[in-house]
Amino acid sequence: MPRVVLLGPQRFTPTLGEVVDRLGVGGKLASVTAGWQERETEDLDLHEHLGERTVNLRLYARGEELFERDAELASGYRERQELLRALQETYRVRLAHAQAALRELAQRTGNLEALDAARDSALAAIRALDREHLERVASVHAEFERRWRPGERPALARSRRQVAQVLDGVEAIAIAGGHVAVLLNRLRLFGLDRALAGRTVFAWSAGAMAIAERVVLFHHSPPQGYGNTEVLENGLGLAPGIVPFPHAERRLDLGDRRRIGLLARRFAPATCVAMTDGAWLVRDGERWVGGPGMRRLLPDGGLTPMELA
């Protein structure tokens, strides 16, 4: 398991360099900006911020090149993504009803004993739905691996070797945000989940989400609908026990104790962490310690600072 550092969003308050120095990472860093998709190589700010010692793994561009070379794999990949989108849609429909039931029960008054039991059951139903969805998605990925054996396909094997060569001289990896599904797919496709062992991983925004155990999509005030938090799929599992909520101040209603408490309970025993600008969190051995700004979501809807390093 690599040493993992989760950071708050970096665009307006870049703290990565400071944390890299603080942890004594003096060597070369690989950067992953695949979540930025076609803007992947517009990473000059990041490169300069880290003292011009980064090399971009270009996972997005490598993916595009790979799909051009291996049309069969590209077709299978597209098919998988279509299936995943359809699964997400059907999960969303069921989730909306389960969430609505819980909301209605939360607003009801009457026999507390009956209501509490019903609320617990409604939450358990949502957790079961999440679990079922994650299992389905995982089985789609497993089936893709079984059917296509991507690692054994010459084009991808060559690309993976090239990525491994770049990683050879690298001490740490910085994974930026962007489109979380694209990022996670590229990380998986090029075997980064295995290649990261023994290195320090810095990740923020979608990067932090992609390396967590579960990818949780969220927004409390979207322009359409209620904003039901949903799980997407399993992440790389490099940040055990943590559910990151980047841009929490913008995307979560941190003052809504009911919704915040619900998140904490829904994803328990994992810790939901509100990650705001300037915040960071490092896994030190078996425990997580945080810098200023990292706050844990509590089951009662409150927020409390993570333990300070």
């Binding site: 979540g35 962007g178 694209v182 979608a206 999509l217 979207p222 322009p223 359409q224 949903e230 841009h247």
Partner: peptide, 18 residues
């Protein structure tokens, strides 16, 4: 406009975390 435009051309809000 927010409600209208996001209904007609929804952005990738749920997927993008920069």
């Amino acid at each position: 406009l927010r409600e209208g435009l996001s209904f007609l051309f929804p952005g990738p809000l749920w997927m993008i975390y920069e």
